[in-house]
Nucleic acid binder design. Structure first.
Lengths: 146, 146
DNA sequence: AATAGTTTTGCAACACTGTTGCTTTTTCTT
DNA sequence: AAGAAAAAGCAACAGTGTTGCAAAACTATT
């Protein structure tokens, strides 16, 4: 199953948790490692499949919420209405996310990616409307599948 | 509650259903009228509140699905992961939607609008990615609330 | 290293959302 | 008006997410 080993040190997860003032527990380490081990986004279901045999569903929900609150991961809106999460690569902090990139959903491998280098475009709105935030989700074929 | 009456004739709903080869039933008439009576988008919950005392939950679900299949309404992706529906204004037909406009969610009145005149922008993707569809959801303050 | 205090986890129960199969009612056709 | 076809209603179920509380784990302190 493992085609390649992770390049992250064994202590990366621990220090990342400590940096965010979170106590280091087996569940948080496992879930955070899942995000570090792959490039895309994960749904609650994905995580439960990978870690759910060892951890309770409720723990997974609460851990994901904690990570979002701390600015470690962010949610991704998808067309099929399933919540997905990905690591924040910008300098997000507690309560302040700055993830102004677009998201890409591959119609072939069904993975979701953050395209960190693609900035959300400016949208010219009709008179009377003002924008606070713009969410862009692109569907298509990703680099690996094309 | 009614600040203004609807401008649609009493027969509009019936003929719209017939045009789409749907049998005219009380449930379909009621739900379709709800969409015609207001400018924004409706969630399943909205519809159930307005029509749910007269109609079964399952009927509402099946009616909405039928309308989507026929190209009468389309789904709107939202950040808070609740499915919303709005009338198709483009020339959508059975199985072929052409709703290439952006969607706007008001942070004040929490209504969702289709901005039919705002075309989805072209997105320059990194090498290797190709786009089939682009979904844009803008959050902000709508015309009525500003 | 042991302990006390705090945080997190697991469990049980629940609420909400959406689905499926089947029977009854309504609609359409003639 | 009657028969055939379609839709609605009902019941049961599955999936998803939440809450309260007791048990377990972690952290800080001695």
């Amino acid at each position: 199953m493992h085609k390649q080993t992770t390049h992250h040190h064994i202590h990366t997860v621990d220090s990342l948790l400590k940096k965010n003032q979170l106590s280091v527990t087996a569940g948080r380490k496992k879930i955070l490692q899942l995000f570090l081990d792959q490039p895309g986004a994960l749904s609650h279901g994905d995580i439960e499949k990978s870690a759910g045999e060892k951890f309770d569903r409720v723990t997974v929900y609460r851990t994901l919420q904690t990570f979002v609150d701390k600015g470690i991961i962010h949610t991704i809106p998808t067309a099929d209405n399933s919540v997905r999460y990905a690591l924040c690569k910008d300098d997000c902090s507690e309560g302040h996310h700055h993830d102004h990139h677009i998201h890409f959903v591959c119609n072939h491998c069904h993975q979701t990616f953050c395209l960190d280098d693609v900035v959300t475009p400016a949208i010219k709105l009709p008179r009377g409307y003002s924008a606070d935030q713009v969410e862009v989700v692109v569907e298509g074929i990703c680099r690996n599948c094309s």
